[in-house]
Design a protein around this nucleic acid. Structure first.
Length: 307
DNA sequence: CGTTCCTCCTGCTAGC
DNA sequence: TGCTAGCAGGAGGAAC
């Protein structure tokens, strides 16, 4: 599942293989891949033709290419990988793999870029660039991030922990004011972006915090530590994944495959906790699986049964 | 307004 | 052996 580290690996691949090239032709198949593009897939393909890729950027799990189209202002091709999306750099004439929804040919003789997605939870859309709404609130950045703005569909997404505009103290306050449990807040992309189920469970394990603890009952230092672990675990995953992907591919299922051996909570049900040897437990929560150590991450006292 | 729930999709696996 | 049910989960929009 692509979370921040995996998406960043893809972004770096795009920076290497795609930035600076001009799209000659885009072939899109099916309506679903362009469902977030209001004018539909035909319009999307037409507007991509002739556009030069200026740079590859990212916020949380959202990825975009800044395009310089002929005789129009710069705009962004927004790519979300969803659960199973991949961007592949493939020889121009290679046959389309199963679940290929988009093929981009360039004006040079180099390889094509392809969007492949089994479940098509991901997709593509073209959006105008708007001023970054999170930049206005940020006063101390030495180098303004996203100086050209962000895609209009990304405005509601909070900065991720790797960004210069990420204001950790403000996020601590925001989380503590939420009337919900901590794992839900950590997964809310409007609070802190880039975190999915895997790294949420890992960060909670490292911090020794149970995911069902109420946000308002956690101390500010505890939330601050949790955010530190969140950043650290994603940074470590990026270090592993960012050095081991095949140059032919922009992404091969992201970095999590290489990071698997470092997971201490996610997918470890029935195995001993690396800290205290208690057995890691898995339970359903928010219609998602959660993995935790019952000793290191004590559950909150049972809440009064709401009625 | 903030929060929670439901749905989209396909491939794999567990269980009968 | 072959079938089905269940599970994986990001995100947007509906519902409360």
């Amino acid at each position: 599942m692509p979370e921040l580290p995996e998406v960043e690996v893809v972004r770096r691949g795009l920076a290497t293989h795609v930035v600076g090239r001009t799209i000659d032709r885009a072939q899109l198949s099916g309506d679903r891949v362009a469902r977030r593009h209001e004018a539909g897939p035909t319009d999307l393909a037409q507007r991509l033709a002739g556009a030069t890729v200026w740079l590859a950027d990212r916020r949380g799990k959202y990825l975009w290419l800044v395009l310089e189209p002929p005789s129009r202002p710069a705009e962004a091709l927004v790519v979300h990988l969803g659960m199973s999306g991949q961007l592949l750099v493939s020889p121009r004439d290679a046959p389309a793999a199963r679940h290929t929804h988009g093929i981009f040919h360039f004006t040079d003789d180099g390889p094509s870029l392809r969007f492949v997605d089994q479940r098509t939870f991901g997709g593509l859309s073209l959006r105008p660039l708007v001023p970054d709404p999170h930049l206005a609130a940020h006063r101390t950045a030495h180098e303004p991030p996203h100086p050209y703005g962000v895609p209009s569909s990304v405005g509601h997404i909070a900065p991720d922990p790797m960004e210069g505009v990420f204001d950790r103290a403000a996020v601590v306050r925001r989380i503590r004011s939420r009337r919900t449990v901590i794992k839900r807040a950590l997964l809310d992309q409007g609070v802190v972006s880039g975190v999915g189920n895997i790294y949420a469970d890992e960060a909670l394990w490292r911090a020794g915090v149970h995911g069902r603890r109420e946000c308002s009952r956690l101390t500010a230092p505890a939330v601050d530590r949790l955010l530190g672990h969140t950043r650290a675990v994603m940074s470590e995953a990026l270090d592993v994944g960012g050095t081991s992907f095949d140059a032919l591919y922009v992404n091969v299922n992201g970095a999590s495959g290489y990071f698997d051996r470092s997971l201490r909570a996610y997918g470890q049900a029935g195995k001993p906790c690396a800290r205290c040897r208690s057995t890691i437990v898995r339970e359903q929560f928010m219609n998602r699986s959660s993995h935790f150590c019952p000793r290191c991450q004590p559950a909150p006292r049972a809440r009064r049964v709401a009625r």
